[in-house]
């Protein structure tokens, strides 16, 4: 196996594109190194992207935040402006692994691992985040939810990798939240999860809503029909009942070692409801 620490995005892309064997990107390494040790993958080339200028920076851009693909959970947690603006997107990311893992793990890595249960993803989807992708033909942007296409697979073409994640400017009276269910209290993988982002008008009526459901389908579900139950309401008990029912109805889970399909359907509704309540409080509505 070859290991190369690329110094520019173009170089990294060219290396990944030129490799005839299995080429993998090394960010924090909390997935790929574990997979390599377990013998699950044997890359011919490992391209480390952390030395590329800007990839470990958090920048303000157009009222929002651009987060380099190499930024760790611990680094993002300490960025107080981001943490107070997008607490929901951050809390999902920070739930991954242990304190030690947080020192290395990246949002982009969690996204590209393409697990339906990735904790960083639903919060980003709810927040309307986008990714910037470097490829052999240059850069392109796309919505977060378009990156994973099935468990373990992404829409990234050969030679492409994510250089940053962008969270847009947050509208006034907007709050976000993420909740997951695990049988333990930490160090576990989501059995079901929900990210919710709500915007209210001055009268306390919900004007925009995004709901993302995790671990209940091959990829995160962008639950438009669940979000619609809240728009135009005060997100009161009746609206939350409708949200819970809609989230449960939209879930398409499987039964596996982590939980039954019936259990996941019920629980994802409960989580969506509870996340919406938190988002509402955070929006100040």
């Amino acid at each position: 196996m070859r290991y190369v620490a690329a110094t520019t995005a173009e170089e990294a892309s060219a290396l990944l594109a030129a490799e005839t064997g299995l080429a993998k990107v090394l960010g924090g390494g909390t997935d790929i190194l574990v997979q390599m040790r377990a013998g699950m993958v044997e890359p011919a080339l490992l391209v480390d992207i952390k030395k590329i200028p800007g990839l470990r920076e958090i920048k303000s851009e157009a009222g929002g935040f651009r987060i380099g693909a190499g930024v760790s959970g611990a680094e993002l947690m300490r960025h107080s402006a981001f943490a107070t603006t997008w607490p929901g997107a951050l809390e999902g990311f920070n739930l991954i692994g242990s304190t030690q893992v947080q020192g290395r793990a990246t949002m982009a890595g969690n996204l590209c691992n393409a697990s339906p249960a990735g904790d960083a993803v639903p919060g980003l989807v709810a927040a309307g985040a986008t990714v910037r992708i470097q490829g052999p033909k240059g850069q392109r942007d796309c919505p977060i939810e378009d990156v994973p296409v099935s468990p373990g697979k992404t829409s990234l073409a050969k030679g492409e990798f994510i250089t940053s994640i962008f969270l847009p400017a947050k509208p006034a009276r907007t709050g976000d939240a993420y909740l997951r269910f695990i049988p333990r209290t930490e160090m576990d993988i989501a059995v079901a999860s929900a990210g919710v982002c709500l915007t209210f008008d001055a009268s306390g009526t919900c004007t925009a809503a995004r709901v993302a459901l995790g671990a209940v389908a091959p990829t995160v579900i962008v639950a438009h029909d669940a979000a619609k139950t809240l728009i135009g309401t005060k997100v009161d008990a009746a609206a939350l009942d409708a949200l819970q029912a809609a989230a449960t109805a939209l879930a398409r889970p499987i039964s596996d070692k982590r939980g039954t399909a019936d259990y996941r359907r019920e629980t994802v509704g409960v989580l969506a409801r509870r996340a919406a309540q938190i988002a509402k409080t955070r929006a100040g509505a």
């Binding site: 049988p183 333990r184 209290t185 930490e186 160090m187 993988i189 070692k257 982590r258």
Partner: peptide, 16 residues
């Protein structure tokens, strides 16, 4: 065996 590791063989963690 489907859960040959501490991720899915769930022993209690300290915070539990």
């Amino acid at each position: 065996l489907q859960n040959a590791g501490f991720l899915d063989y769930r022993i209690p963690v300290a915070s539990d």
